[in-house]
């Protein structure tokens, strides 16, 4: 993962730590605690492909997305978009956002209730391109039609739309400037099952039509399986497994991935992985994570070394990366 050939996005050892302090502490200077939401993530997204980042809620995947989208300043590491380093104000946000856009989880909160649909979609066009008002209108309508909605919706307000329509509008806004990379943060988890399927199909179509690259953030293995080429599994701020989506789903190697995939509802129970792993306990707190491998307190294979050394993400077979000291045990 060294060169950027064919990679639209590459992060190197990306970190985002938060200081957990409550307001202004006047009397006692208590030691501020650090939340390691993203703790050294190196990830690449090939052009035109979809990479899913899966994990339970609180594992840091949304923070990872927001950090890559420069909505929050990274605490360490590097972010490259199309080979250009973009973190730390090295590139103007307008340049970055012309290539990178985002779709958020909650369609209700992703559209300004006071703003007409058309104006929401026009916003990136106005802010990021030098288009005239007429060109903006034309591009926005095109975008609206690309997500399967007619121009009639241009002057509607969000509260006149259904949840699925709102999410379509959010997608239309994100693709209006024809970005290279779309970060999809749980794009369907707030929607009904039938609407979910429609949105997922739309995303597949749009990817082909505009040769988009997707970074899909989700906790839903089925959604990841449907949409993705590659899958990255995240646990407590670290990537623990990475590889082609079908491989990871059919032959997970990290003990955490195994439990994650086994716990997901699958249509054909015979396909369920035979290697069953029982895990105990809960997701560790990001304030005081366990030493060494963060999964070790819950891991059935844990040995002494696991509590001391955090295993690096290593390529075990071509294209398959796992961060585990005893990866041979799950072979």
């Amino acid at each position: 993962m060294k060169d950027d050939d064919g990679m639209v996005l590459r992060t190197v050892d990306l970190k985002k730590h938060f200081r957990a302090s409550k307001g202004l502490n006047l009397s006692s200077r208590s030691k501020t605690q650090v939340v390691r939401a993203v703790d050294g993530v190196s990830l690449s997204i090939p052009a035109g492909k979809t990479v899913a980042v899966v994990g339970e809620s609180g594992c840091g995947k949304t923070t990872l997305a927001r950090t890559i989208a420069l909505l929050t300043e990274p605490s360490g590491g590097e972010i490259y978009l199309d080979g250009q380093r973009i973190d730390g104000g090295r590139e103007s946000h307008r340049e970055v956002y012309r290539k990178l856009q985002m779709v958020f989880q909650d369609p209700d909160s992703s559209l300004d209730p006071q703003m007409k649909v058309g104006n929401s979609i026009s916003q990136p066009l106005k802010g990021l391109t030098g288009m005239s008002d007429r060109e903006v209108r034309k591009a926005a309508v095109e975008s609206l039609e690309a997500v399967g909605m007619s121009e009639d919706y241009f002057d509607r307000l969000p509260r006149q739309l259904s949840g699925g329509q709102k999410q379509r509008v959010a997608v239309a806004r994100a693709i209006s400037t024809h970005p290279r990379l779309l970060i999809l943060d749980e794009p369907t988890s707030a929607l009904d099952a039938s609407v979910q399927a429609q949105i997922l199909r739309l995303l597949v179509d749009l990817q082909k039509k505009y040769s988009l690259s997707y970074m899909l953030i989700t906790h839903n293995i089925a959604v990841a399986g449907y949409l993705s080429d590659m899958m990255a599994v995240m646990y407590a701020g670290n990537l623990v497994e990475y590889g082609p989506c079908s491989d990871v789903m059919s032959r997970p190697r990290h003990p955490y991935t195994i439990t994650l995939i086994n716990s997901a509802p699958v249509p054909d129970p015979w396909k369920r992985n035979l290697l069953s792993v029982n895990i105990k306990g809960e997701v560790p707190s990001a304030i005081n994570p366990p030493s060494g491998c963060k999964f070790h307190p819950r891991c059935p294979y844990a040995q002494a070394v696991c509590s001391e050394v955090n295993p690096p993400l290593e390529e075990i077979t071509p294209g398959r990366w796992v961060a585990c000291h005893f990866v041979e045990k799950t072979a």
Partner: peptide, 26 residues
């Protein structure tokens, strides 16, 4: 904390524009 503010940032808008276009109306 609403996502539409972040979407506005992704549209290249600064604090001032966000204040007038999104925050004040809401």
């Amino acid at each position: 904390h609403q996502n539409y503010i972040e979407a506005a940032r992704l549209s290249g808008n600064g604090h001032r524009k966000i204040l007038f276009r999104h925050v004040l109306p809401n």
